[in-house]
Every structure is written in structure tokens, then in C-alpha cells.
Write a protein that binds this DNA or RNA. Structure first.
Lengths: 351, 351
DNA sequence: CTGAAAGCGCTTACAG
DNA sequence: CTGAAAGCGCTTACAG
């Protein structure tokens, strides 16, 4: 198939005659001024009905679409929202993006997405040049470094922060309430297993989510009158690898059998579960396991994995809703939406 | 925390004095014309070194960033690429986006992403208004409907198609070679199991990937001199649900034990594997299973799942590379990149 | 090598 | 209700 002959050197649309159809073309066709065409498209209530009809007809006939660059030059709006995530991975972000995308479309916006895994400092900050094209941004901040948040708020553009429940937040924030679900899970584990044999195996010690989940775990055990040993709270990575290693160490120490584990995510939980079975232990008979995220696969794992549900999709929806509200009503009340987590019990943690 | 006082009503940056810093501001500060500032930024080789230094200094001092709308109005380029996917889900797309995002950054572009799951007709087409902001688009087409591809090619903008190996493709295409991996897998299964007991359990019958994988499976068995029965090729959905149901039916018919299955993706494979174990059958002892996609979790499943590897990340990288080449060199040779798949054998299909 | 000027395609006071 | 005109912030021939 050859190149499309209608495709010019710039790759942009050309009219059938070759001339680009601009607001002027439409104005001429409708016998009005370009100001009127603009009004019909932007503030139709101000223009006479008959005139509007003629203009609209011309717009349709010519297939006119306003040039967004010219429009943006005047209005300083692009209807594009930036989304900055730590990295592309897994079901969680997919769900979040699905929610965000659907909501954005509903409101006539688009999403410009980028990851910031490459920039150790300045997490959450996309490359500068994109900033001038977007009306605002949604940034996930997982690091505990407060300056990352400060940098975002200093952008002087509408920003919605996605973060774990934390002290320091922005004007508009969607907070994942890690605490409640992790707290429930810890109690659930301690209900069936001696608190001394309960463990938390989470992600990096620098990650807000991991920290918060660990805190909830610790608090729950304390509430039951158990002092928590240092070795009961473990930080590593969000990976199978880490879960496998941790379980291996506990196994060598002869401590895996009879334990109950709250994992920082489902991958870690699966790894621990498999390491246990590999050693001839049964789950949940010998080792009880609860994951975090409640990935779609959880009910289908063997055994079905208990997990703390994170409503990722809702996070995406809320973030977009907040951001667009801020963009369209700059004076709106700063809002903090807290999204809950909750324990879903399946076979892997039964007792 | 109160609203940032530096944030004006449009949400855009204001200089410390309140005035927006434009090319004019820089020109005045450097004692040159705006034309010279523009040249320093775009075609530095044309301007005297001393002048350039002064301008650059002013740019830095003032924190000047060109207005992208004004720039786009002249150049008709935004350095934003559209990416249209069927839906947000799973590891595959995350990997693809990761590759695309990294490559785009390297070349100074951004990604505007959207899904088209909501528009049954016109798959691959994003809402019209975004088209005017992007320099080109990457569209995944999974339907077999040829008109979807036609619609994309008629956009009169650079388009890179992501599709399964198929007859109908666009000028620039990244083709996933489903055939080779599925073909390998079918032979691998038939090597250890009577071809009469080999099955393919794929996604929807309307999906290009599913169709192609089925074709490879059928061809492999035919090559071995076995005629393929209709019940050996099964189309359903890309879900656990479907795999579970299919395995259940085979189980009821007393045909699950002794079978070997190539699943259309890893979810389906896991479902079949679990259904078999649920019925007291062993994998791979009684039922051999191979998945498709080779998700990160495969080595950690129980048993580790054989799967056909799909280099999603590379698809993303190639797509962006092709698109940017087309944008920057409209006359470049139309190119078709074929990305291979290959079987990764693990325990689930051992014999 | 540099500047004055035209022009990209819109929006929006300002008059009428 | 509508038009003429200014202006948004750039790029790029055209002169010099």
C-alpha cells in the first residue's frame, strides 16, 4: 500500500482542495465574520438562532475542527491532563488508569501519561516541556521525601496528589487509606495465630504505602497487648524475589511453620505461599497468608488468596474529578478524598 | 495549606513581577530581537556565539520556556504521540507502555494515551478532538474488521498499527508474530501427548491474535498428519472464567485427564490448571498446560507455567520508533516490524 | 549574522 | 446580535 496521497508533508489534514479549512473558510461559507463563527462554537447563547444554524451547517459541510494550538494560545487551556506514575506495571496501575481515562473522557479531557522511574530526585515531576501543554497534573508520590511534594506544589499549576495516608499532602489529594485494611488484616491473622508468630513483609522502607501498612500492622498487635519484635516487621521490595527470600530465611530458622503473614502486595504473598508449599508446608494449615491489592487473580490462586482490596479504579476516577474541578473552579475548596481499603478473606488465611 | 499565592486564575505560571515571561521579555533582557531569541533556541548554528550566550543567559535567568501553543501554531508539531489501546489491563499493556514511554522520552516526545473499549465500531479511533493535538498515533487493532484499519489510515496523519500477523496492514506496522510461538507450543504438546488429545483454548473468535494462534496450532497438528477436530479449537474470552468453564466441560466428558492444552493467554492457562487440580488431577502429570504472554508471574505459579513469550516492551519501543521516524521523515520507506514470540518451557507442560 | 514584519488561527473586548 | 480589530507568542521568509 502506497502512501496516502492526501497526506501532506506535515502529516496534517488537508481539505479536498488542498487548502486547510480554518475559521475563515467557515466564516466565508456562512457569510459571517470569524468572530461569529467563534461565538457559535463557544457561546452559542449569544448568537441569533438563524445565524448559528448557517454556521453550524458550514462547519459540518467543511468538516471544520478548530485548531487547538490557536485556541490554546488564547485560552491557555488544552483539556489535557498530565498523569505521572512511578512506573508502568501490574494490574493496579492499569485499573487506576482505566478509571482515570473513563472519567476524563466523560468530561472531555485527555490524559498525557508518563512515568518518573528514571528520575530519582524529583519523583512525580515530568520533564519540564510537557508542563506547558497540560492544564494540570495528577502525580503519584510514593516516596516519603517531603521535598517531592513541595516540588509538585511549586509548579504553579493545578495538581492532584495521589498518596498514602500521610501528614503532608497537597491542596487536593486522593489518599489511599492503607491503614484500615492492613489493620483489619493484622487482627484477622492474630485472631487465629499467636501474635508472636505474625509477620509483616512489605515493600521498601522508603515507600509510603509500605510504611503505613507496617504501622497499621504494628498498632493492631499492640492493641492486643503484644509488644512487636523488630523481626516481625520486614521491608524489602515489591517482588516475588523478596517474598521468596524472606520465607526461605524464616524456613531455615524453623519458624515458617505456624506463622501468619501479611504481605505488602499479592506478589510477595504468592511467593511466600509457594515457598511454604515447596517446603512441604500447607497453606493455610501451616502458614496463613494475606496479600495486598486484591489483584484479579487472587480468587484463582491456589489456594485462593486473602488480600486487602485497593479500589484503584476509584482512585483514578476521583483524581480526575478533583483535578478537573480545580481547573474549572480555581477557587474551589481544597479537597482530600480518602479511599478506603478492606480485607477480603479467602482460603489462604483461614484458621 | 492555603492556595498558592503565585497561582493565578488560569493556573499558569506567572513571573515574580506578575508578568508572564515571553520571548519578548527574553529579547529585551538580552538586547536582541525576538527573532534572534527564536533562532538561538531552534537553529543555534545560525547565530553569533556571543549573541547566543547572552540570550541563553537571559533564558536561564528568567526561567523562560517557549509557549507550546504558539510554537505549535507555527510548526504544527506538538511532540505528543497518541496511543490507542483496546483497554487498560494487565501486565502486557503495562510492559508495552513502559517500552513506549521510555523510547518516547529518549526522543523528546510525550504520550497521550486513551482506550477505545467503549466504541464498538471504529476500534482504534480516539475521539476526534485529540487528533489535532498529536503528531501521530499508535493504534492497536485486535478486531479482524478491516474497516477499522481503513478508518485509521484515512486519518491523514502518521499512524503506526499494532496488530497480529495479518494480511491487511498499514504503511508502518508492528506485527506480533503469534504464529511462530503458537506453532512451537503445539508441536511441544504433541511431542508428549497424542495429537487427538491436544486442545487450543483461546480468546474471542473475532480477535486477530486468537485467530492466528489457533491457526498455528491447527497447522502444527496437520503437519504431524493429524486431522484436527472442531472441538480441539475453542474460542471464548480472555478470562479465568472461560478457562475454568472449558476445563469443567472437558472434565465432565471424562476427557481432561490425559490432555494437553495450549491456552490463549496465561489467565486461561491458570484456570485450566486449577480446575484440573481441583478435580484431583496433576499438572503436568495428567494435564499439560501452556499459556500465552509469559506474564511475570509464570515462573512463580504452581507449577511454574510454560508460556509463549510476547515481547511487549519491544513492541512499545518499536512502535514509537517507527512513528517518530515517520513524523520526522514523511518520505521514509513504509516499514513493517515483525516481533517474534517463542515458547518458554517450564514444569506445567513437562512430559 | 540580525531585525522588522507578516502570519499562524483563534478569542474577546469594544463599538455599533 | 454582529463585525472590525487587537492580540495571544511564536517562526520564518525577506532585507540588509
Amino acid at each position: 500500500m502506497a502512501n496516502n496521497p492526501d497526506r501532506d508533508r506535515t502529516g496534517k489534514t488537508t481539505g479536498s482542495g488542498g487548502a486547510r479549512v480554518s475559521i475563515k473558510t467557515v466564516a466565508d461559507a456562512a457569510g459571517v465574520s470569524i468572530a461569529t463563527v467563534s461565538r457559535v462554537l463557544n457561546t452559542p447563547s449569544i448568537v441569533a438562532e438563524g445565524t448559528a444554524d448557517r454556521v453550524l451547517q458550514a462547519v459540518r459541510d467543511l468538516g471544520y475542527r478548530p485548531n487547538l494550538f490557536a485556541k490554546g494560545l488564547m485560552t491557555r487551556k488544552s483539556r489535557v491532563l498530565g498523569v505521572s506514575l512511578p512506573e508502568w506495571s501490574g494490574d493496579s496501575y492499569a485499573e487506576l488508569m482505566r478509571g482515570a481515562d473513563h472519567r476524563a473522557r466523560e468530561l472531555g479531557y485527555h490524559l498525557l501519561v508518563t512515568t518518573n522511574s528514571h528520575q530519582p530526585a524529583g519523583e512525580g515531576l515530568p520533564p519540564a516541556f510537557a508542563l506547558d501543554l497540560i492544564d494540570g497534573m495528577i502525580a503519584m508520590v510514593t516516596s516519603r521525601a517531603a521535598q517531592d511534594i513541595d516540588a509538585l506544589l511549586e509548579l504553579n499549576m493545578p495538581v492532584v496528589l495521589l498518596t498514602s495516608n500521610a501528614d503532608k499532602v497537597g491542596d487536593d489529594t486522593v489518599e489511599l487509606d492503607n491503614y484500615v485494611g492492613a489493620h483489619q488484616a493484622a487482627h484477622h491473622l492474630a485472631d487465629g495465630t499467636d501474635a508472636n508468630r505474625c509477620y509483616f513483609v512489605g515493600g521498601p522502607a522508603t515507600n509510603r504505602d509500605a510504611i503505613r501498612r507496617a504501622a497499621a500492622f504494628r498498632d493492631a498487635l499492640l492493641e492486643r497487648g503484644h509488644s512487636v519484635r523488630a523481626d516481625q516487621i520486614n521491608h524489602g521490595a515489591w517482588s516475588f524475589q523478596w517474598g521468596w527470600e524472606w520465607a526461605g530465611k524464616l524456613l531455615e530458622a524453623g519458624q515458617l511453620a505456624g506463622s501468619a503473614v501479611l504481605a505488602g502486595n499479592d506478589e510477595i504473598a504468592v511467593a511466600i505461599s509457594h515457598r511454604a508449599r515447596d517446603a512441604g508446608l500447607s497453606v493455610p494449615g501451616d502458614v496463613r497468608v494475606v496479600g495486598f491489592d486484591d489483584a484479579r487473580v487472587c480468587p484463582f490462586l491456589d489456594p485462593p488468596l486473602s488480600s486487602v482490596r485497593v479500589p484503584n479504579r476509584r482512585i483514578g476516577v476521583e483524581a480526575v474529578s478533583l483535578l478537573i474541578r480545580r481547573i474549572e473552579s480555581p477557587e474551589a475548596e481544597p479537597t482530600r478524598v480518602r479511599v478506603p481499603t478492606r480485607l477480603v478473606i479467602r482460603e489462604s488465611s483461614q484458621y
